[in-house]
Write a protein that binds this DNA or RNA. Structure first.
Length: 449
DNA sequence: TCTGGGGTCCTAGGACCC
DNA sequence: TCTGGGGTCCTAGGACCC
C-alpha cells in the first residue's frame, strides 16, 4: 500500500502563509522571467487559467486585474517543503520525496483505521505548524495513489483530506470516472493517440491487451497500465537515486548579442552547477554548454547549438567546471546571431569518491577540494555570493525579469529563522532567485486597500 | 511588448565488431 | 541478379513528470 502526500496549490499556499490577504483571491505564481503560470489558487483554476499559461495570455481567460501575479521565491518554497516532509516522516516509513511538494511513503500500521488516524494527524499538524493544506491518497500502486490523491484534493466530502482507494470494486468505479489524460504517465500526445482509438477513460485503457499496449506504444505505458490494474511496477521510483545530470539554465531577460555578456551568464551557471554537484557529493565526468536564440521571434535568424566536453578527471571544482563550460561555449559561439537562453549541464556524474585519477592530469585534486570546501563554508556562513570567481562579477545583463515580487512580511523573521532577512534588501543583477530573497517592489492588489 | 527550469526513461538508428 | 546474423555502445530525439 502506497501513500502519496501532496501539498495543495503549493507555491500559492506558501505565499498565503505570509499574506493571508491572498486567501480567497485568484492568485498565480509565475515562472522565472515572469513567463508562465506555475501555480494557481483554486480561484484561478476555476477561472480557467491553465497550468503553464503564459502570463500575457491570462487575459484570454479572465480579467487580469482580478488576478494577483507573483514572482516565484523558490528558496521559501523549499524551506516550507522541508517542514512538511519532516512532519510526514514522524509518522510514515520509507518517505520518498518525489518533488518539492509531494512524497510517496508507506505506513507502519497494519490496520486501516490506525493508519487513517495517523495520516489525519499529519494533515492537521502540517496545517497547524506549517500553514500548508495537504491531501493524502492511499492505493496499492503509485499510479493509483496519484488518482486517490486527486480525489482527496478535489472532493470536499473526503474526511480529513485522506482518501483510500483499495477495494477492487471501488477502483473499478473510479477508473471509469477517470479521463485517460488524468492518468499519471499519460500526457498530451499519448492521450490524444489513445482517444483516437476510442480509449477515453482509465477503465477503457485497462481493458486493452497489455501486449498490444507494449507493441503499439512502449514498455513504459504498459507499466502504467499494469499499475492501474493494481500490480506494483515501481514506476518512476525516485528513491534516493542520486542525480545523473545537474543543469542550470535560464532564459535571459532580453535578447543578447554580446559574447562577453553571455559568457558572464555561462560562468554563473557553471558556478551554480558545481556548487550543487559538491552539495550532492558528486563529480562530473563531462560538462555541456548550450545556447539558443528566441524561438518565438520569427523575425530573427535562429541559432541553437550545444557542446559537450569530457574532463580529464571527473571533478566538482568550480574552476574546472567553469573552464570547461567556457571552452564548450567558445566552440559553439557564432557571431551575428541573437541569443535568448543558455545553460550548463554536468553529466556522467559519479558519486561516492571512487574517482579514477588521471596520471597526466596536472591538477592537485586534494588542494582543490580543500579550497572548494572552504569557499562553500564561507558562502554558507555569509551568503551565497560572498566569494565568486572573478569572471562571474560582470554586469549580469542576462538577468531574468522578475517584476512581481512583493515585500515579505516581517513575520518571516519569526517564522523561519533560517533566511537572513538582511539579505533581502538588495537585488543585484545576475544572480539566482534561490540565492537570496528579494525585494522592494510592491505588487498591486486588486480590491485591497 | 510579454511564452520556465530541471529532471527521468525509452527508442530508433548508426557505427562498429566478429 | 545476388548483398549474413548477431551483438554492443552511443547519441539524438521524443515522451513524460512537477
Amino acid at each position: 500500500m502506497y501513500g502519496l502526500l501532496d501539498c495543495n496549490n503549493f507555491f500559492v499556499s506558501c505565499e498565503r502563509v505570509f499574506d493571508p490577504r491572498l486567501n480567497g483571491k485568484m492568485v498565480v505564481v509565475l515562472s522565472n522571467n515572469d513567463g508562465c503560470v506555475i501555480a494557481r489558487s483554486n480561484e484561478a483554476k476555476a477561472a480557467g487559467i491553465p497550468m503553464g499559461c503564459p502570463a500575457f495570455k491570462i487575459k484570454e481567460h479572465t480579467d487580469p486585474r482580478q488576478v494577483i501575479q507573483l514572482s516565484a521565491r523558490h528558496i521559501l518554497y523549499r524551506d516550507l517543503s522541508c517542514r512538511v516532509m519532516n512532519i510526514l516522516s514522524d509518522e510514515a516509513d520509507n518517505v520518498q520525496q518525489y518533488s518539492v511538494d509531494e512524497a510517496f511513503f508507506v505506513l507502519p500500521h497494519e490496520d486501516v483505521e490506525t493508519s487513517h488516524r495517523a495520516m489525519a494527524n499529519v494533515v492537521n499538524r502540517v496545517k497547524q505548524y506549517v500553514g500548508i493544506p495537504v491531501s493524502v491518497g492511499f492505493a496499492p500502486t503509485r499510479t493509483l495513489a496519484k488518482i486517490a490523491n486527486h480525489i482527496a484534493k478535489r472532493d470536499p466530502r473526503i474526511t480529513d483530506g485522506v482518501y483510500w482507494l483499495v477495494r477492487p470494486e471501488a477502483i473499478d468505479i473510479i477508473l471509469r470516472r477517470t479521463p485517460i489524460e488524468d492518468v499519471w504517465g499519460i500526457g498530451r500526445r499519448l492521450s490524444a493517440s489513445l482517444k483516437s482509438k476510442g480509449i477515453k477513460t482509465a477503465a477503457d485503457f485497462v481493458k486493452m491487451p497489455p501486449s498490444l499496449v507494449r507493441s503499439m506504444y512502449s514498455v513504459t505505458l504498459e507499466r502504467t497500465q499494469r499499475e492501474l490494474m493494481g500490480h506494483d511496477c515501481q514506476i518512476a521510483n525516485p528513491v534516493d537515486i542520486a542525480h545523473k545530470t545537474i543543469m542550470t539554465s535560464r532564459t535571459f531577460g532580453k535578447v543578447l548579442t554580446d559574447r562577453d555578456e553571455i559568457a558572464d551568464a555561462i560562468v554563473s551557471f557553471a558556478e551554480r552547477t558545481a556548487r550543487q554537484l559538491r552539495a550532492e557529493g558528486g563529480v562530473a565526468g563531462s560538462v555541456m554548454t548550450y545556447v539558443r536564440g528566441d524561438h518565438f521571434r520569427e523575425d530573427l535568424p535562429f541559432y541553437s547549438n550545444s557542446c559537450q566536453l569530457q574532463l580529464a578527471t571527473p571533478s566538482s571544482d568550480t574552476m574546472t567546471i567553469v573552464r570547461m563550460a567556457l571552452n564548450a561555449f567558445n566552440n559553439i559561439w557564432r557571431d551575428g546571431f541573437t541569443y535568448r537562453k543558455a545553460g550548463v549541464m554536468a553529466l556522467d556524474i559519479q558519486h561516492g569518491g571512487a574517482i579514477q585519477l588521471n596520471v597526466f592530469d596536472p591538477e592537485d585534486h586534494g588542494k582543490l577540494r580543500r579550497l572548494m570546501s572552504s569557499i562553500d563554508s564561507i558562502n554558507d556562513m555569509y551568503g551565497s555570493r560572498s566569494i565568486k570567481l572573478a569572471p562571474g562579477l560582470q554586469r549580469g545583463s542576462w538577468a531574468p525579469n522578475q517584476n512581481h515580487f512583493k515585500p515579505l512580511s516581517k513575520t518571516l523573521h519569526f517564522y523561519t529563522g533560517m533566511i537572513d532577512i538582511n539579505q533581502l534588501q538588495e537585488t543585484p543583477k545576475g544572480h539566482f532567485e534561490d540565492d537570496e530573497e528579494q525585494d522592494n517592489t510592491t505588487t498591486e492588489y486588486p480590491d485591497m486597500p
